[in-house]
């Protein structure tokens, strides 16, 4: 399958914004943005039917650069704003781009309740294991014993598995991938947009400038190679001995089912109430 060429991606960017973009050299956010644009370009969706919503953080700068309907909102509240948009105009495809701190720490409450409602949003969580924009504080997904500016002797908190949280809260499409696996990310974004219900994709990203430097991971190419070598597809987990699976990133669609969608139920309720005369 030939990839979508770079010149098509350039057509989806806002050239009146300052390019090159704000992210550091080697940051995975640009790679993920490329995968998202490729997925949307491959689906032949109109740009006017897509809304990209984000909160605050490095990854949340993403909607600034793309030519869709975009919303750059409060810290952690991206899913709350997206819920409002989806309820007002259910035909729009709402994509939420958020970081690990934005989604799992400050916006954790919105994440679990959107998953519980099963509202048709596609949440793409870029997990770089640290608060990159504010200088490298510990985030809920910083691994145990990793270093951060607020954990100079190593982090003593266990890290958060956001995928398991989303499955537990009732999300109907949960997947995990890494920024290196661009084709996989592209396919997952496509599936998430088509999925009728709440979809969460966790994309493991590299932050070479802050996380990489504090944890002596090398530069961007080394971190990308680690992502490639340290992850296994879900289909291979059963075939491998448990000691080889220990500590690896498991990629793939972790959970998928169908439940009634919130907007559809709301429309039905409205019809029912209007038929009764709406007296209650």
């Amino acid at each position: 399958m030939p990839a979508i060429p770079q010149k098509i991606i350039h057509e989806y960017l806002r050239h009146d914004k300052k390019f090159p973009h704000v992210w550091c050299a080697g940051c995975s956010n640009g790679i993920v943005l490329g995968s998202i644009i490729r997925a949307i370009a491959g689906m032949n969706l109109s740009r006017n039917d897509i809304v990209m919503v984000s909160g605050i953080g490095c990854s949340s700068r993403m909607p600034v650069y793309v030519d869709f309907n975009t919303l750059h909102t409060l810290h952690g509240r991206a899913i709350a704003f997206a819920t409002g948009i989806k309820l007002h105009k259910p035909h729009l495809k709402v994509i939420v781009v958020t970081g690990d701190g934005d989604c799992a720490a400050i916006g954790g409450n919105h994440l679990i309740h959107a998953a519980r409602r099963n509202i048709d949003l596609s949440v793409i969580m870029l997990n770089n294991n640290i608060y990159g924009m504010t200088g490298g504080q510990v985030s809920p997904t910083t691994p145990y014993e990793a270093y951060a500016t607020t954990a100079p002797y190593g982090n003593i908190e266990p890290d958060f598995d956001v995928c398991k949280l989303a499955i537990g809260a009732g999300a109907t499409y949960v997947a995990r991938t890494t920024a290196f696996h661009t084709q996989e990310t592209q396919n997952m974004v496509k599936e998430a947009i088509e999925h009728p219900g709440f979809a969460l994709i966790e994309v493991i990203c590299a932050c070479p400038v802050i996380y990489g430097r504090l944890n002596k991971k090398g530069g961007a190419p080394e971190m990308m190679k680690e992502m490639r070598d340290n992850s296994i597809p879900l289909s291979a987990v059963d075939k491998l001995p448990p000691e080889k699976v220990q500590g690896k990133i498991i990629r793939g669609v972790l959970h998928k089912d169908i439940r009634p969608e919130y907007c559809a139920q709301y429309a039905e309720l409205m019809k029912k109430a209007q038929a009764q005369g709406g007296s209650k």
């Binding site: 010149k7 960017l13 956010n29 290196f180």
Partner: peptide
């Protein structure tokens, strides 16, 4: 193979057959 295309974070390289 377009590996550089896919992995460039800055959209700054194009290795496609037709530019």
């Amino acid at each position: 193979c377009e590996m550089c295309d896919l992995l460039c974070p800055d959209f700054a390289i194009s290795g496609a057959k037709e530019h």
